[in-house]
Design a binder for these strands. Structure first.
Lengths: 138, 138
DNA sequence: CTATATATGACTTAATTTGTCAAGTATTAA
DNA sequence: TTAATACTTGACAAATTAAGTCATATATAG
């Protein structure tokens, strides 16, 4: 429970790798694989998701690969997590989805903690950027 | 990823139910089931875990059931979560288990976010108590 | 004694995660 | 143009974890 999935870890690792790279020439899956030893086919899948979510750009053909699409300062960690995993929903009774829960009063007595957790996690993930990680700044 | 498991939700629901109860006479699995509709056999398992972790006391035999073992103010939500699920480890490279990770330098560039998440989650769970929930206080 | 409860551990079933593969399409260096 | 390189897609399989059930044993109030 509440474990960071490999999808997330790998996804962030790949992004950090791209962030460390020159920013001009594309890095191929092979390149990233050689640095991080993330299973190649799996990594590829994740990169596709990152591309579809506008975080990286792909360059096809020989010498192709992937490049960050934005300034690392503009890339929230939350964006990366969402890209590879979908929205971070610790519970299904946030404000937006309130109708899906709380039919029983007692259940709602437990809700505040989960909501607080949900908020605090989303806060951290949306305050930190890729830049924070590649620059070793707080 | 990062979803609250039913074990946690059920476990906390059961504890809240016990917290709402008179605190003297035991509540049977059946009683809790009737309030919360948590699958009976599953609930039982969870209660056994809560007992083994010193959060509830069991009274066997007719009119038996479960009672909170401590003052709700002394019961951290984290205790409950740990009881039903084991330690909350978002990642496996916290200070204590540092040796199990970070063999690759780059991987550690991603570590700070996960550590921060880990800490923030554990903080919330250990600051909130059962009493906070049953009393609707912040 | 008996009805009611918990205790325990094994066992299913379902869902999710993680990872692989194959066949195809696109691009470019040479 | 061609060979090499790389991305695209969707299906699939293995492994792990979560969720839920059951049978049997043990304890106790009345």
């Amino acid at each position: 429970m509440l474990k960071i999935s490999t999808r997330c870890r790998y996804g962030l690792l790949a992004m950090v790798e791209l962030g460390q790279h020159d920013g001009q020439t594309p890095m191929s899956v092979q390149d990233i694989y050689q640095k991080q030893r993330i299973p190649k086919f799996y990594l590829q899948q994740l990169l596709v998701k990152l591309r579809r979510n506008g975080l990286v750009e792909s360059v096809r053909g020989s010498k192709g690969g992937f490049v960050l699409k934005k300034d690392p300062k503009q890339i929230k960690i939350l964006d990366i997590v969402k890209a590879v995993e979908g929205p971070v929903q610790l519970i299904f009774c946030t404000k937006k989805a309130k109708d899906r829960c709380c039919r029983r009063i007692k259940e709602c007595l437990t809700r505040p903690v989960w909501v607080e957790l949900h908020e605090v996690v989303n806060k951290v993930l949306s305050e930190r950027t890729l830049h924070d990680l590649t620059q070793n700044l707080p």
